[in-house]
Structures are given as structure tokens and as C-alpha cells.
């Protein structure tokens, strides 16, 4: 568990450098991504449902990204993009292609569908957090 937390933190930090996140924010985007991954592994170990775990992780990462963006007066994208990458279904994409080549089409379909479902979950999580923070902004301007 500890190794996985350190691994996800390192992964998000190095992705941040690849995407060109400003130097002073790298550590924060790393924290946002690592918190999301901790939640992901926790839910996997308790419940076992990958979809719920991805949804919760994306939700937390998007929430932290919005909070940090307001704290540091920086665009949300800076924290959101590197943090959301670990939830992207890379493993299922690989399995889908692998099974397609080996010739097990039904397994390939299964993994392709799972990858699409996970991508949908990520989209849903970002939608929800964006609309929550959008609500707050419109209230402020109305007053």
C-alpha cells in the first residue's frame, strides 16, 4: 500500500513535468493525484468495484484541483490534467488489444467495454465537480 502511494505520487509528479506544470505547483498536483489513488486502492480493497473506485478517485482529484486553483489563483487545468491520468484505463486498453491479437474476441470486447465505462465514470466525476463549482460562481455574481 505504501509503495503504491509513493508510486502514484512519483507518477503524477513526473507527468506534471512532462505536461509543463509551473515549478511551484508540481508538488500540489502530485498531492492531488496521490490522494485520488489512495482512495482508489482503499475502495478496491474494501469493495472491489473498479468503477466506483475510479469514480471516487476522479471526484476527489477534480475537487482538489478546483480548491487549489482558487487558493493559488491558477487555471484548474494545471492541477486537473496530471491528477486525472492515473485513473485512465491503460491496463484495460492493453488487455483489449492483447486479446484481440491472441484471438479471444469476447475477452477483448469485455475489456474494451470496461475501459469505456471507466472513461465515462471519469467524465461524470469531472462534470459533477465542474457544475458544483459553477453553481457557486453564479450565486456570487447574482449578489
Amino acid at each position: 500500500m505504501l509503495i503504491q502511494i509513493i508510486g502514484s505520487f512519483l507518477a503524477v509528479v513526473s507527468l506534471s513535468v512532462i505536461f509543463g506544470v509551473p515549478k511551484k505547483f508540481i508538488i500540489y498536483s502530485g498531492i492531488a493525484g496521490a490522494v485520488g489513488q489512495i482512495l482508489y486502492f482503499l475502495i478496491i480493497s474494501i469493495n472491489g468495484s473498479q468503477l466506483i473506485a475510479v469514480f471516487a478517485a476522479a471526484l476527489v482529484v477534480a475537487f482538489l484541483a478546483h480548491i487549489m486553483a482558487r487558493l493559488f489563483k491558477a487555471p484548474v487545468t494545471v492541477f486537473l490534467v496530471p491528477g486525472i491520468i492515473p485513473t485512465v484505463p491503460g491496463l484495460d486498453m492493453y488487455r483489449a488489444v492483447y486479446n484481440l491479437i491472441v484471438g479471444q474476441n469476447s475477452l477483448a470486447q469485455q475489456h474494451m467495454l470496461l475501459a469505456l465505462k471507466i472513461a465515462g465514470m471519469i467524465a461524470l466525476a469531472i462534470f459533477i465537480i465542474d457544475s458544483l463549482f459553477g453553481l457557486k460562481r453564479t450565486k456570487k455574481t447574482a449578489n
Partner: peptide, 18 residues
């Protein structure tokens, strides 16, 4: 699977959703 994660189009993905 670990190596392709560095290639994933993260910006296009999040921006399309937003």
C-alpha cells in the same frame, strides 16, 4: 500498460469533457 500511460492524451481528454 505502464509504458503507454506516458502517451495517454490527458489534455484532450479532460478538455473535451469540460
Amino acid at each position: 500498460a505502464g509504458s503507454i500511460m506516458a502517451l495517454v492524451p490527458g489534455v484532450a481528454l479532460t478538455n473535451s469533457i469540460r
